[in-house]
Design a protein around this nucleic acid. Structure first.
Lengths: 217, 217
DNA sequence: TCTACTGACGAACGGTGTTCGTGTCAAGTA
DNA sequence: TACTTGACACGAACACCGTTCGTCAGTAGA
């Protein structure tokens, strides 16, 4: 199973590893090892780990197909794209962090994706300037959400560590209940909502917000 | 200037270093060095680097004072808190990442901050369930925004690296202009808006969205 | 056939977080 | 006062990390 080393091969091996572990454990050394070579061999095809990360992200964004804009359904279409984006990002724990830290995405798939989102907003009659800002804001929020969800499903030992923290907080707060009336009364609501519910809520807030702001300009 | 090692001392040294560099360069070794000792000495007061990060974040959140909720001005008050939060996070590049990755904040200041935000929403007449969800969503977005801004002002060489990327993208897109009509026409708008404008836009979208969703339930 | 060049890669540099075992010193006890 | 106990300090080491340098092999072109 010895193949010639290619940039594509490196990226796909890295994504394969990422899918079943975590970004931090996808190291140049482990990728090289999986190719039966040393880490130095990778640098002929990839200039740095950072570039590799961006290539990985671009590859993933390429998996999201963009719909043909339909002016009557633009909000639902935008939600659908956001859901797919979240699914892809959370399926590869840690990559969402890259999406957030990359200032200006350069890859062809990123551009194609951005173009598609923008097209949906404009098809919905959102003014140019609002569309440009909304585009940025929504992408940011989706990535942020993915970072959080990724954290949950990685080595954080959801059920164990989180329960412990919850218990600790509850102890702290009930000791000084006067200081935290709202957190105490809403605590159960906060911790019982699923990630999916929170994501759908966020999408709704965003889109109604964008529509309202668009109307006011 | 030799003082006894304390958890507080470690945290404040770490924050001091963070303020003038970057989270990645605040290492246990450098903190220890600044105390004229070895890294092992820190582990008597802090169980891991992760715990230190959370302590740092909590300390920073403690710097944000929460206003007394005024039902007539709740939206403006919420915006003001978000602005302060952004300012604190971006003044310490990299800490926003921790804010995003920490699933359930445990520190007393984090709790106090959360309680305050919740109080503002409830004072505004937002229903319990919506307040709980909105609280989470807005915190996430502010952190996400801070991550991006932090990236911009750290070693990313704003004016250099970014210009290069912009030029590269423009070249790529004008070569196949038919594929990117919207990105090309909105490109100037996208790149000419300041971070502050984008933040204010996001705040407005959020708050009008929350108010609208609250009305519909 | 000889030459240039590209890709592969072993070894090493300078960093990282964390652990182990030893030392030191002060407080509590007899 | 003498002794014991326990908390804190910390040197050394472990197992990693990303990246660079210099060398080597093999191939395409002259």
């Amino acid at each position: 199973m010895r193949r010639a080393i290619t940039q594509n091969l490196i990226v796909s091996i890295a994504l394969e590893m990422l899918k079943q572990s975590d970004l931090d454990s996808v190291s140049m050394r482990r990728i090289a090892q999986s190719l039966s070579t040393g880490p130095a061999s990778l640098y002929a095809h990839v200039s740095s780990k950072e570039e590799l990360h961006e290539l990985m992200l671009d590859e993933l964004l390429g998996m999201i197909e963009m719909p043909e804009p339909d002016p009557d359904r633009w909000q639902e279409q935008l939600k659908e794209v956001a859901r797919k984006q979240l699914a892809v990002l959370t399926a590869h724990p840690g990559i969402a962090r890259i999406a957030m830290e990359t200032t200006v995405p350069t890859g062809p798939n990123s551009l194609r994706h951005g173009e598609g989102v923008l097209a949906l907003l404009l098809a919905g009659g959102v003014p140019d300037r609002v569309a440009a800002l909304a585009f940025d804001t929504v992408a940011q929020w989706v990535s942020a959400f993915a970072v959080e969800v990724s954290g949950h499903k990685t080595g954080e030992i959801d059920q164990d560590d989180m329960q412990r923290r919850m218990a600790q907080i509850e102890g702290y707060m009930t000791e000084r209940a006067a200081e935290f009336p709202n957190l105490i009364s809403l605590g159960p609501t906060l911790s019982s909502t699923s990630a999916e519910e929170r994501f759908e809520f966020g999408l709704e807030v965003f889109l109604t917000g964008i529509a309202a702001v668009a109307r006011n300009r």
